[in-house]
Design a protein around this nucleic acid. Sequence first.
DNA 1: AAGCACGCCAACCGCTTGAGT
DNA 2: TACTCAAGCGGTTGGCGTGCT
Length: 257
Amino acid sequence: MVRTPCCDKSGLKKGTWTPEEDRKLMAYVTRYGCWNWRQLPKYAGLSRCGKSCRLRWMNYLRPNIKRGNYNKEEEDTIIRLHESLGNRWAAIAAQLPGRTDNEIKNHWHTNLKKRLIQNSNSSAHQSKEKQEDLSRHETSQEGESKLNNDHPDIISFQILESSPSSPQPSSSNQFSPITIDTTGVTSSTELILEDDKVASFFEPYAEPSGNFWTEPFLADNSYNFNMYSDFLEPLVDHIDVPAYSPFFYGDMLCPYI
DNA sequence: AAGCACGCCAACCGCTTGAGT
DNA sequence: TACTCAAGCGGTTGGCGTGCT
């Protein structure tokens, strides 16, 4: 979407990712991990800069990405965290499993910010009316409680504002680029992938009882390729990922995984 | 049906941070 | 300590989709 597909001066492709590029990146990262984002596109056969690959993986291809349909809890969390953390989208995203900082940022600018402004405007307007009304009756305390009843959302927001801000230390979420956020993933069937193609792409290789996404990536920081070779081999071969890599086949060592 | 305006959001850019030497 | 470089982060951009006239 968005950027017109083109090449920059160094010959690297920019703009919308094609399904083929997605498959290449996904297959390569799945097979070899993200040992070096700058070098990765070269070995993955992609004419993209490493930064672009990383972004694509982090915001779109990474497993357990939840997309769209924010529920009220999530929105409340975003609002509350934004109140205490400001525009630290990565920190906010760390508290919302499956959501990316980019997506939260977009959602904030397109929905939540407007909503808050509207709320504050209407509350300010009504507050003014109430104040005038109250000054007439000189019953400020009574009026305050009525205002609270009229705008429970605003009030709860005020309470949250005054409460001690508690940016949770997100140790588990401050993952390195290739660490897989496994929150909420208990089996391969629970993968949250918006793109049906991507989901179906991996479906035939999903383990019935194991946890593909967590086990190989978390097991003692080494890539247990052999365990998933049956899974990866046909997958990678099928989508024609370049056979070369700085690592020996089946002897992959990636300190980040 | 065609043109226009606007919102959404994927992706880019540039700055900052942190690790390695 | 200073320097280099990769990765992370947040702000911004701009094409596409959709609703409105």
